[in-house]
Design a protein around this nucleic acid. Structure first.
Lengths: 146, 146
DNA sequence: GTGATAATTAGAACTATTCCAAGAAAAGGG
DNA sequence: CCCTTTTCTTGGAATAGTTCTAATTATCAC
């Protein structure tokens, strides 16, 4: 299991403030939900989970909050082909593996230096602000629980 | 510029047949359009271009044909975030760079061994059928014409 | 407190894509 | 060759995920 980084509530508010965003109960709860179960939920899945705590929240707010968290770099948006966007609070550099059989998504830690090595393949004049490495495939039954 | 691989018409038909698919004028023309201008067009852009040659073709057919070409491994579908899918006839292993300013997509050749090195970061039990490496960022003005 | 700014909400709108049913084209068997 | 079967194309309707809009509510700075 990858190491988890847990922000103190103050750091959470600060991260938002650094991007000129306000802290709100909705944003706090949505972030805590992402931390609680790191299974790369979709916006719909987050919506279903957050309603237990904030029954009157709207789906639009879930999208807004997730976008806010992505914009202040607390959360990563993960896309596989044209499937719904998934959300990931893992701030370490990592790749994603999408299990086509189970429909599940797993973080894959990157060894030190690999990202730099990948960035180095860019020709002069290419300046990458983000690098994504993603796998599709299957996991062996006993690997699924790792 | 990456090397281009041009299939003879017979090989084209054979590639389809190998996947149990028929050759049709629509599929041929769409494939030739992808080869002619390798700028990673969307389905809509392919539709606009193919109408010059087959004025009565439908958008549904464009999607069907592109899917057929992807299924028999003549074409790769390329996705960036939630933008429309783009299509690429480059069969060499390569990464993609998406220029956020220009909206353009460029192939990045992979040095030998890199893909294997990336695959090697997968823990035991993870079997990847495809690996995607994609960059987002900007290209310097003089690099845009490379 | 008060005015300005930002966030939330419900629902409508949008976009890329897929589905559907009907007709056209091609392949294979006699 | 005709006939049958399968595959492909087509236009339009449907769908899914996401974004937009306008009104309301909350928060911030003074």
């Amino acid at each position: 299991m990858p190491a988890t980084v847990t922000l103190s509530p103050d750091n959470f508010a600060q991260a938002l403030a650094d991007s000129g965003l306000r802290n709100t109960p909705q944003r706090e709860v949505i972030y805590s939900i992402l931390l609680k179960k790191r299974d790369h939920p979709t916006a719909d899945e987050v919506y279903a989970r957050v309603k237990a705590e904030l029954p009157t929240i709207s789906l639009a707010t879930v999208y807004n909050c997730l976008e806010a968290l992505v914009n202040c770099n607390l959360v990563r948006a993960v896309n596989f082909e044209r499937e719904p966007t998934r959300y990931c609070p893992n701030l370490h550099p990592h790749a994603h593996f999408h299990d086509e059989t189970a429909g599940s998504t797993h973080d894959i830690d990157l060894p030190p230096g690999l990202l730099e090595q990948v960035r180095a393949i860019l020709p002069p004049g290419y300046d990458a602000s983000s690098i994504e490495i993603s796998f599709r495939g299957r996991t062996a039954p006993e690997a699924a629980t790792r």
